[in-house]
Design a protein around this nucleic acid. Structure first.
Lengths: 259, 259
DNA sequence: GTTGCTTGGTTCATTATTTGAACCATTGGT
DNA sequence: ACCAATGGTTCAAATAATGAACCAAGCAAC
């Protein structure tokens, strides 16, 4: 493992529930030597990627990440555009919606919106990491990826998130075929037991999937009518989002837009 | 220079005007060996910090930076809160406003807002890097920093941005004394020739300066009346912002809030 | 086509950086 | 006063980074 990879992996240990980490904790979490962790943190600190929380001496993510994000946003303004799409889609369906982006080996959620129609809804965090095989978003993105990319994802061991997660490569390939026909992926309890998710891919300028737009509803609330409503609103919203970010759908994407 | 620092420095070459960079360009920009740059980029790519732009093989910042920013925002929600403050302050003054955060050796602008009252205004980019000694924001933050931190900033060579930039440590210390008395820093043409800036520090929970809130007006529009209006609105807005992010002003900060 | 220049990417012996066990100095609990 | 943490530091030994040279591919001019 290269030094840079190690340093970046340290950043991965910061989460919503663990926003600050001390040197010893980080040493244990990473399994690296304390001196190593210390030196890596020092370099990350110098670069502004982490800082020492004002009060104690624990570390947290630094202001530089905001600068980088602003820059990324300037070249690929997907966040700004997504927020509008999410708000509209949540209003239309009454359910929680989110946008996730393809990373190397997983998807990451970058924005979400809640519906206001119901007393209960599926909760989300930004920055959540979600798998390709175990989520509707992942299946949606994977379905339209290069065959080679699909192969390498399915070659890895696929761990189940719940009792309903698809882990058999053959079953997943069958699911992907359906997604390619319908343009929408569906997962009932595949990531969280009580969540029924629909997702549609969003595409970049080259017609390759950038990520997915998804609607997550409680399993208990799903009916045939809501399902149809979600699928049609989602299909429309995903096409709009692809267009708004300057992307274009690949030929393999089903053209039929629900009326 | 450590490997991690080198890798992070590569990220620094991405700017608003140069959002995508090829391997050869980056090699020239950084002055490092091509193989080195390639390997560093590969590691950064694996970590999602950069990605290869869909079309060509040039590199740009990757989706991981968005995830990190969302996480940073979850622990220090300064961006969200700042945007509200900026909108109000721009509305009140009619001028461009921005929030900058203290980094190791400079400030970085993380958000801005424009006034709508005039046909002209000072233009800003997010993610701009601004010096401590040459800007109102920098002076505001420096004035309330630890004496040791001030010493080490002034120990570095101070390069002028314009003919009006303060570069003499003694003159800067005198300016800081005034800032400490008034709670507001002022710079006429110190960073950009035609810009008259006011800035007030914002503080973290420990009473240390986190950064500054600033108002930038064209020099040509500045009058005694506008100056007073800006100073009073800025003072109020900065106190509010400090409060909203859960910060508290240090004893050395002048308590007099303009009525 | 062929030439020549540039690009992204790769190799491998040399070299400099990273590593890790042990060691301080502080802090907080008992 | 003690013990067990914590953040931080040291230095020989081991490992990973380096850089000059090298490919293959793309492109423009001829």
């Amino acid at each position: 493992m290269g030094t840079v990879t190690k340093a970046l992996s340290l950043l991965g240990f910061f989460t919503q529930t663990r926003p600050e980490i001390g040197l010893s904790d980080l040493t244990r979490l990473s399994g690296l030597n304390k001196a190593t962790v210390y030196r890596l943190l020092s370099e990350l600190q110098e670069g502004g990627m982490v800082e020492q929380a004002g009060s104690g001496r624990a570390y947290r993510l630094g202001p530089e990440v905001l600068r980088l994000a602003a820059l990324r946003e300037a070249s690929v303004p997907i966040l700004t555009v997504s927020r509008g799409a999410l708000d509209r889609l949540s209003a239309a369906t009454g359910e929680t919606t989110h946008v996730s982006l393809v990373r190397e080996d997983a998807l990451i959620t970058i924005a979400h919106a809640y519906g206001t129609r119901h007393a209960t809804c599926v909760m989300m965090d930004d920055a959540e990491v979600i798998s390709f095989h175990g989520t509707a978003s992942g299946l949606a993105a994977m379905a339209f990826a290069d065959p080679g990319a699909i192969d390498s994802i399915l070659a890895e061991p696929l761990s189940p998130h719940t009792d309903f997660t698809l882990t058999d490569p053959t079953a997943i390939r069958a699911a992907l075929d359906r997604v390619r026909l319908e343009g929408i992926a569906e997962s009932v309890g595949g990531f969280e037991t009580d969540v029924h998710s629909h997702a549609a891919p969003i595409f970049g300028p080259d017609g390759k999937p950038l990520g997915a737009l998804a609607v997550a509803a409680p399993v208990s609330r799903m009916t045939a009518a809501l399902r149809e409503q979600i699928r049609s609103a989602l299909r429309r919203a995903a096409l709009e989002l692809t267009r708004d970010i300057g992307g274009s759908c690949p030929p393999s994407y089903p053209a039929k837009v629900a009326a």
